[in-house]
Each structure stands twice: as structure tokens, then as C-alpha cells.
Write a protein that binds this DNA or RNA. Sequence first.
DNA 1: ATGGATGCAAATATTTTGCATGCCT
DNA 2: AGGCATGCAAAATATTTGCATCCAT
Lengths: 165, 165
Amino acid sequence: MANRIPAAAIQQYSQEHLREVLNTAGRRLTPQREKVLSLFQNLGLGHHLTADDVHHHLKQAGNRVSLATVYRSLKLLVAMRLLDEGEWQEGLRCYELRQGGGKIHHHMVCMCCDHTEEFVSEVITAASRDMSKVAGFELTEVRLILRGICRRCRQRSKATASTFS
Amino acid sequence: MANRIPAAAIQQYSQEHLREVLNTAGRRLTPQREKVLSLFQNLGLGHHLTADDVHHHLKQAGNRVSLATVYRSLKLLVAMRLLDEGEWQEGLRCYELRQGGGKIHHHMVCMCCDHTEEFVSEVITAASRDMSKVAGFELTEVRLILRGICRRCRQRSKATASTFS
DNA sequence: ATGGATGCAAATATTTTGCATGCCT
DNA sequence: AGGCATGCAAAATATTTGCATCCAT
């Protein structure tokens, strides 16, 4: 369903980009920053991790990195547009690898099992651009999240009483 | 631009609904809960407040309410679908009055001045339903956020160097 | 040596929870 | 009386920041 771009291509591009931009600004591509980005690249597109998730993954892989640095790196990578930040699951701030080429994509999140599916819709993308143009708005990002129940979960449970705590 | 519904109608509906549902479940419509909902209703559709904002507003209006209760009330009202929760501005969890009749609407947020505009797009709504149907997904909510720079801010600043901290 | 980046710990900020008390039915 | 809700404070989380130190140029 999603319009995937070869992971290798992205990896090359991102690493290049990152080193280049940082150097130009007199800053560095440290092992920690590289590791954070690599983690997302190895997982591939569509994986959502919290700052804490990232920290755990890196530690588990034997890397020396502090949670504070993870936060700082994530913020940097988002500012450099290599990662996207979002709250796909209620109350959890997560990060994901940004698709190369500025390809706009959307998310379909199951409120039952939290499974996230990505998809691309030219119609929605075009409509977003139209609405922006009309409003004199310079569009930078489109974030669409469809929330509901996925096919699997629907089949599993037929009658569910709606409850509130 | 937004498709507004008479505030009075919503107010009636919500208050009714709230009291009714709560009573049925053996629970109560307390002054605090009423005040939290009223705040959003008085502000009207399209206003985004954090839990802390709500608390401040209520205290300032001379109400006796604790922040903890505000959190609890917001959670309840969201569960009852009277409010929507979202992270429209980076890193801020906000709440807004839910539009009656399940009318789907979207947000256009200026990253410069944080001004938020609402709009309705039948095209996007239809496309969202289509994508869901194809995926066997039971659609409950559509959340679209367009982020960028609004007309005013664009005119104010012409040359802006992109920086990352 | 210079200045950016890191780790650590402390400081903040945000949200949740335990518990005694109050209030409605 | 019985039980839900509240306030308050403490606890649990989440995120940021100060500072000494480390490291690359």
C-alpha cells in the first residue's frame, strides 16, 4: 500500500546530507547521532519509537549513549528533516524516519491493537495543496491520521460495549 | 471557512448527553465537569487549550477546581467524545470542543505564530473513507493537520535562514 | 586551544495516583 | 449508608538544562 523507496538510497542520502549540513554549520556527525539515525534506517520506514525506545535499543546494542543525548539528537534530526515527530498513539510522542524526496504519506492507526499502516493518497495530497493555496498558506507538512479499528481487530471482537473510565 | 454549527445547539446537546450518560452509568455531572465543558463551549469551536490552560481559566473565573480534577475531567470528556485531544502545536497536548454531528474538520497551523485555522474538505473526507474501506478499516476519526506559514507571517518575513539548534 | 557534544545529575514540566474528606442519591 | 468525585500532596513520567569533561579540528 505504501509507496516505498529503497532503504539503501535513503540511507546514503541521509548520511551524506547529515554530514554535509552539519559540517557546513561547523558542527559534527558524532557516533551517537549516527547511531540514532541508523537505528531508524535499519528498522525501515513506518516504525515509530519514543525517545525512551531509542535509548533502550541503543543501549541494548551495546552503545554508550545517554537519554539526554537521545533527546538532543532526535530534536536535531527532526530540525534537519531526517525524522518526523508525531503523536500517533495517544499520549506517546514518537519519531519515525522521514520518507526521502519529501513524499507525503499518511497513517492509519488501529485504536485496538495500535498497529500502524502507511499509505499514500494523491487525492489528499492535492487537496491539501489546494486548500493551502486558497488560504495563502505556505505548506510545509501534511499530517493525516485515520484512527479506527483494523480488519483483524474487527473480526476478533464483534460486540464491544463502549466504556469510559 | 469552517462549517460552523450554532453554538447553542451544541451546548444543549452536550449538556443533555453528558448528564444522561453519566446518570445511566451511576455517575455524576459535577460543577467541575460542567465548568470544564462550559469553558470550551463558551470559547466556541476551534479553540485549543492545554490542561493547564483550562485550570488557569477556571481559577481566574473564581472556580474552585484542582489541576488533577481538570485532568480527570478532560479524560472523561474525551472518552465521551465531547472533546477532542490532539497535539496541534509541537509538544503541547491540547483539547478542543468536538463538532456536533460528527462533522469532520481539519486544521491548518502556522508554525510561526501558532495561529490555527479550521477548514472542511469534502474531498479529503471522501478520500479518507475510501482508503479505509479498501483497507477493511472501520474509520472512527480523521485528523489532518497542515503545517506551514500563514499569509501574515509570510509577508512579515521574507528572508528567513533555516536554523536548527 | 577552541568550541561543539556528551554524560550525569539536578531542575522542570507533565500527568497520574493514594487517600482522607465531602457531597449526592 | 454507600459510593462517586474532589483536593491535596506525593509519586511517577517525561523532557530540559547546567556544568565539567571529552574529543575533533
